[in-house]
Amino acid sequence: MTDPQLLRRWRLALGRYAERALPSSGLTGEDQRTDRALDYLYAREMEKRGLRRGKSGGKGGSLDPTSLTPLGWLGELRDLFPQSVYETVQAHAIDNLGMSELLSDPAVLDALEPNRDLLKALIAFKGAANPAAREKIREVTRKVVEEILRQLRPRIEAALAGRPNRFRRSQLKAMKNFAWRETIRDNLKNWDSERSRIVADRLRFHGRSRRRLPWTIILCVDQSGSMLSSTIYAAVMASILTALPSVEVKLVVFDTAIVDLSSEAHDAVEVLMSVQLGGGTNIGAAVEYCEGLAVQPTRTIFVLISDFEEGAPVGRLLSAVRRMASARITMLGLGALSDDAAPVYDRRMAERLAGCGMEIAALTPDRFAEWIGARIA
C-alpha cells in the first residue's frame, strides 16, 4: 500500500501492534494523540489475547497507556472525537472491556457522558461502588432517567390515551338523562308569549357517572444481568403508569429472592438504585407472590418481564400461571422491553407459558403502552 491516507487509517485501526510495519512516526501530532487514546483502551483487549503491552520499537514512550489517567483519557476523547464516537468508545470501555476504574472515581464519573449505555454499566457496577461514587452514580442515573422520561412520556401517554372513536355516539345526551326542571329554569327568559311556549336555546342533561373498579397492573421483573435493559425500561414504565387515574401499580423484582418495590414505583431512580443484578432465578416463586397481589383478578394485568430461564423446577411456575388464567387475570410475558425489542430467551419455556394462558411478546415501551391501553380502556 502506498496511499498515505490508507496507511494512516490502517495504523490507527491496528494500533501499536502494527508499529514495526506501520511506524507511528508517520502520523501527525493529532493522529499520535488519537493512537495513544485508542491504545489506552483497546490494548487491554489485546493483552487478554496474550499480546504484551511493552513499549514498541524503542519509541513507544508516547504510546504508553500508563501515561494517561482515566480522567485525562476521557478529556482526550472529548477533544479528539465527535460526540457519537466519544459515546461509543466510552461504552466499549465500561461495558465490553471492563474498565471499572472509570466508575470508581467521582471526578471521572462527572466527566462521563450520561447516556443509556452508561446507565446500564452504572446499575451493574453500583453494588461495588464506594459511598462517594455511589452518590455520583445516583446523580448520573437521575440525569439519564429524566432524559428517557422526557423522550418516552409523550409517546406513552398518547398510546395509553388511544384514539377517539368519531363513530361512537355519546350517551350523555340521551333523553333518559334530560334534566327538564333545569332546562325550564335556564330558559324562562326565552318565553314566547304569542305561541305560549318556552324556546329553549340551552338544554341541560344530568351527568351519569358509571362506577368502575380500579385496575391493578403488576410488573414482575427478572433482575438477572441479561435483563438489564428491560429492567431499566420497566422502572421507567412503572413511574409513568403510577400517574394514571384509577390504576394501582405493583412492582416486584426477583432473582432467587423477591423484593416488592411497589412503594417506590413512582420513582424510577430509586427503583434502579435498589435492584441487585445477578444470582439465580426462581420465576415460579415470584409469580406465586404476584398472584397474591391480585385482589380483583378480572381487573388485574400481570406482566412478567423475563428471559424465562427458570432455575427452579418448572411445575410451580406453570401451576401458578394456570391458576391466574383460571381466575381471568390478564397475563403478558415479555422477553424484552426495550428500544430494539430484541429478546434472548428460553423459547421452549415461553411456549409452555403461552399454552397455560399467558400472551408472549417482545415490545418497545410505546407498544407496551398501547397493549396496556387497549385493556384498561
Rank of each mutant, 00 (worst) to 15 (best):
H266F: 12
I283V: 09
L228S: 04
R212W: 09
Q223Y: 04
S229L: 12
L272S: 08
R210L: 11
T281M: 13
G280V: 15
V269R: 05
L241C: 02
G279C: 12
H266L: 10
E270V: 13
L277A: 10
G225M: 08
G278Q: 13
R211C: 15
A257S: 14
A243C: 09
S246F: 08
I218P: 04
L251N: 00
V275C: 06
D260I: 09
E264C: 06
A265C: 11
A268R: 07
S246E: 11
G284I: 08
T231F: 03
A265L: 05
A257V: 15
I283K: 10
T242V: 13
D267I: 12
V271F: 08
A285I: 06
S224A: 09
G278L: 14
L277T: 11
V271C: 10
A268K: 12
S224R: 06
A235P: 01
V275I: 06
A285N: 10
L219Q: 00
V253H: 03
A243H: 12
T256G: 08
S263T: 15
R212S: 13
V259Y: 12
A238H: 01
G284K: 14
L228G: 03
T216V: 09
G279S: 13
P245C: 11
V275F: 04
A234M: 00
Q223P: 02
V252I: 03
G225V: 14
A268S: 10
G279R: 13
R212A: 13
I258M: 03
I258A: 02
I217L: 09
L213A: 13
V269A: 03
R211E: 15
L251V: 00
A243R: 14
H266T: 14
S262Q: 02
E248R: 12
G225W: 08
W215L: 07
L261C: 06
A268E: 10
E264M: 08
A285D: 09
A285E: 07
A235C: 01
L277R: 09
L251A: 00
M273W: 04
C220D: 02
S274D: 11
T231I: 03
V259K: 12
V252K: 01
G278P: 14
T256P: 07
S239T: 00
E248M: 10
T256W: 09
S224T: 10
W215C: 06
A243S: 15
S263H: 14
A235F: 01
M227G: 00
G279V: 10
V221N: 03
G284Y: 12
N282S: 14
L241R: 01
V221M: 04
G278R: 15
M237P: 00
S209T: 14
L241W: 02
I258D: 01
M273K: 07
W215Y: 09
S230K: 01
L251F: 02
T256D: 09
V271K: 06
N282A: 15
V247C: 05
S263L: 13
T231H: 04
E264S: 12
V253Q: 04
A257K: 14
